[in-house]
Design a protein around this nucleic acid. Structure first.
Length: 789
DNA sequence: GGCCTATGCATTTTT
DNA sequence: TGCATAGGCC
């Protein structure tokens, strides 16, 4: 039996071995959060406090869910078949598939992703002749999703003004449309699942009796609905083991409610709040910087990270004249690091908004440095892939008008906008889907649309017995998609992507454990399965023990509640795939601060630390906006393991205009002792207070002798080339007059000893351990430090 | 139907 | 500035 508890620190140990009661684990950045979570699961099972079937572990991203599953099985051989580990949406989908009838859904319901949802809304509004200048589709989408995330159906929304009343009306119409088409959007998955449990006491009792152990990752990111869903499953007696970090809550804009942490603590009378403050990632100066900054936030649960790693390097700060010059400096630093043997993949460049990446990318390209940018189009979001999926969806669920509208005339088959409008009118008139309305349209429109309907019918018939990969391949060919892209000049990539869909289908079949010949559209019996899927649950027969994992009456026990095709389509919607180009390549990593959450790098650049950008100007209008920006900066800082750079530029090209920014207020909230200004620090007052005319300011105010005006010297850090990990004390004492071990005296801090030196000339700094004031970095040009004999 | 131009818009994003 | 989208034109 593996010793799961070996090498845990006392707080981690305490968290892992808590009694089965509500618990809130405040897990700081880099504190071993995932480790605690999975060790907790393994320990519960090992000790006999839980079985795999009693465990439900929920995360936000598929990546996190996969990592959890992988590390768990690596830690301990566990039969994960009965375990529910997944994202909120994935688990809700699973439950809705198992109980589709009780949930009021067709068995083949399809999931709309955000783009599908928007086009469904646009179609709805067009049909109702709604002026989309006055009621923009995007706003309605936001309104609907927001309402759902508050758990509100149209009848529950309080609308006082005519504008909102219209939105409520449209929300209701949208719901009807979705219901008729058999589609659900993302928030609907959660709300529908919540209502399923709320309105069905036997079902609720079943799952409550089953999931005795509920574990939640990134709890600070939960929204109201997700929290309500968790409470529903927990009932009166189940333990929720919530792990999160209020200081890393950066998703308020999409509904995350940090308040859930306080609420959870209060509502469940949490006796077990454990703080994981030991950080295993960053060196001391980096942590001090993070701690100092986040301390400026109010309403924290309170936490201070510590490390055994030593101070390490100071945080380097750089002021550039322009964004271009900032990028040039970054590239020089990176070159030096690479030269010293650093791996490109261990270097990250972070920015607040995507627009900032362009300048940096250009500079990297010119320097010939491999990089990769996070974000952008994901595999299942590509046009050609979505087209292929639309045909597959129509085969599975002909009422899916979003899919129908998408491909009825793609590849083009002479069905124009007018014909489609006629069909949509007919569908509205007969209150049916477009596919069902085909017989009602006549004339030329009727015949071309009729041919399309026949094509779909033929596909449905001919794929009846085909496996999933065969079906996909058949559809790509028969739909004419393949031929279309073969004829297109630049269709080669798209063709390859279509082939990738076939491959993805084959991989899916394999991973899900279906036989390769399993028909895509029947619910198969897998080897070892004893029952056909039963839908509607054991509630029909109260004598059946629904908790018996072997019981055929427990459909949730049987993963085979979806056909391979439905599973694949769900997979495509819920897991849109990688958006990281050239993954695996050793390349410098570019991403937004949001995208960096959860990652770590040897060296991190946080760029564009300017008022208006970071903190972002729009945050000023949001309640608690500045605090969220500060948390964002905190997340960014805590990504760095050994080296951290903070930079800002006096001027920056944004939206085609040059903006002049002042440095971020966050600099005034950082510990001066942990910073090393590579460019001279200019007090805000010195520049702004004394400025009477602004001719040329910001370009050449700091030009040094011998430099051209407006040209910036390469302020490349002379230490950048030190190997990573690098921070052996710099013994150079050449021009400082001090050396390591030297006893010194400071007028304010008293007696101390020099323990490190770095930089030279005006940048020279000494780290001093004072007898009564601890360790500090002092700029020798400024500090009045005297050598003591 | 496809191509071209005019126009508007630009914080962060997973499912 | 640069992209996505919409609308007009051939």
């Amino acid at each position: 039996m593996p010793d799961l508890l070996a090498n845990l620190n006392p707080e981690q140990l305490a968290a892992v071995t808590l009694p089965n009661e509500p618990a809130l684990i405040l897990a700081g950045a880099g504190s071993g959060k995932t480790r605690v979570l999975i060790t907790r699961i393994a320990w519960l099972i090992q000790q006999g406090y839980a079985t795999p079937t009693t465990i439900l572990a929920v995360t936000f991203t598929n990546k996190a869910a996969k990592e959890m599953m992988a590390r768990l099985t690596a830690m301990m051989p566990i039969d994960t078949r009965g375990m529910w580990i997944g994202t909120f949406h994935g688990l809700c989908n699973r439950m809705l598939r198992a109980h589709f009838r009780d949930a009021g859904l067709p068995q083949t319901f399809q999931i709309l992703d955000t783009a599908d949802q928007l086009s469904a809304i646009k179609r709805l509004m067009k049909g109702l002749n709604i002026d989309d200048e006055k009621y923009p589709a995007k706003n309605l989408q936001y309104f609907i999703n927001n309402a759902k995330e508050q758990g509100l159906r149209p009848k529950d929304v309080d609308a006082t003004d005519s504008f909102n009343m219209k939105f409520v009306e449209l929300y209701a119409a949208y719901e009807q449309q979705c219901q008729r088409e058999g589609v659900v959007d993302f928030p609907e998955l959660l709300l529908r699942c919540y209502e399923l449990l709320a309105h069905n006491p036997p079902l609720r009792a079943h799952y409550q009796a089953r999931f005795r152990n509920i574990l939640v990752d990134e709890f600070q990111d939960t929204n109201k609905l997700q929290y309500a869903w968790l409470k529903m499953l927990a009932g009166e007696h189940n333990a929720i083991f919530a792990v999160g970090d209020d200081d890393q809550s950066i998703y308020a804009f999409r509904g995350a409610n940090v308040g859930n942490m306080h609420d959870f603590e209060r509502e469940y009378h949490v006796r077990n709040m454990i703080k994981l403050e030991q950080n295993y990632r960053s060196h001391g100066h980096i942590l001090d910087t993070a701690n100092f900054l986040i301390a400026k936030n109010s309403r924290r649960l309170g936490k201070n990270l510590r490390t055994d790693a030593g101070h390490g390097e100071p945080v380097r700060v750089y002021e550039a004249a322009t964004d271009t010059q900032e990028a040039a400096w970054i590239v020089e630093e990176i070159k030096a690091m690479i030269h010293a043997g650093a791996a490109r993949g261990e270097i990250a460049i972070l920015y607040r908004s995507n627009a900032q990446s362009r300048t940096i990318e250009h500079t990297l390209v010119n320097a010939g440095i491999a990089y990769r940018v996070y974000g952008g189009l994901r595999f299942f979001e590509r046009q050609e892939v979505k087209h292929a999926l639309a045909y597959l969806r129509l085969i599975d669920n002909p009422n899916d008008d979003t899919a129908f509208a998408r491909v009825v005339n793609f590849p083009t088959r002479g069905i124009g906008a007018r014909s489609i409008e006629q069909l949509a009118d007919a569908a509205r008139l007969y209150n049916c889907s477009m596919a069902a309305a085909v017989p009602y349209v006549t004339g030329k429109a009727g015949s071309s649309i009729g041919a399309f309907a026949q094509l779909i019918a033929k596909m449905r018939a001919e794929t009846q017995q085909m496996s999933l990969p065969e079906t996909v391949e058949y559809v790509i060919r028969t739909s004419g998609l393949a031929a279309h892209y073969e004829n297109e000049r630049e269709g080669q990539d798209r063709l390859e992507n279509l082939q990738e869909v076939v491959n993805a289908a084959a991989a899916f079949v394999q991973e899900e454990g279906y036989g390769l010949d399993t028909p895509a559209r029947s619910i198969p019996l897998r080897p070892g399965a004893t029952n056909a899927p039963e839908i509607g649950l054991a509630t029909d027969d109260p004598s059946v023990d629904v908790l018996d994992p072997a019981s055929p009456a427990d459909p949730a026990q049987n993963p085979d509640t979806m056909t391979p095709l439905a599973g694949f389509l769900s997979h495509a919607s819920l897991e849109a795939g990688d958006n990281q180009a050239q993954a695996g390549q050793d390349a410098v990593q570019l991403m937004t601060v949001h995208a960096a959450k959860g990652l770590e790098f040897m060296a991190v650049f946080i760029t564009g630390l300017e008022e208006g950008l970071f903190p972002h100007e729009n945050s000023a209008q949001e309640s608690d906006g500045l605090e969220e920006e500060r948390r964002l900066a905190y997340v960014a800082i805590t990504r760095a393991k050994e080296r951290l750079y903070l930079s800002f530029a006096q001027s920056r090209m944004l939206h085609g205009q040059t903006r002049y920014n002042i440095r971020s207020r966050f600099f005034d909230e950082l510990p001066e002792e942990s910073l090393k200004w590579l460019t001279p620090k200019v007090e805000a007052g010195a520049r702004w207070g004394g400025r009477s005319d602004n001719a040329g300011w910001g370009r050449d105010w700091f030009a040094r002798p011998g430099q051209e005006r407006g040209e910036r010297a390469a302020y490349t850090d002379p230490d950048a080339g030190k190997p990573l990990p690098a921070f052996a004390n710099n013994q150079r004492a050449a021009d400082t007059g001090f050396k390591v071990g030297q006893p010194v005296f400071h007028t304010k801090f008293g007696e101390g000893t020099v323990i490190a030196l770095e930089g030279s000339g005006a940048d020279a700094r000494a780290q001093v351990r004072f007898k009564r004031h601890g360790e500090k970095w002092l700029a020798l040009a400024v500090a009045k430090l005297q050598a003591v004999e």
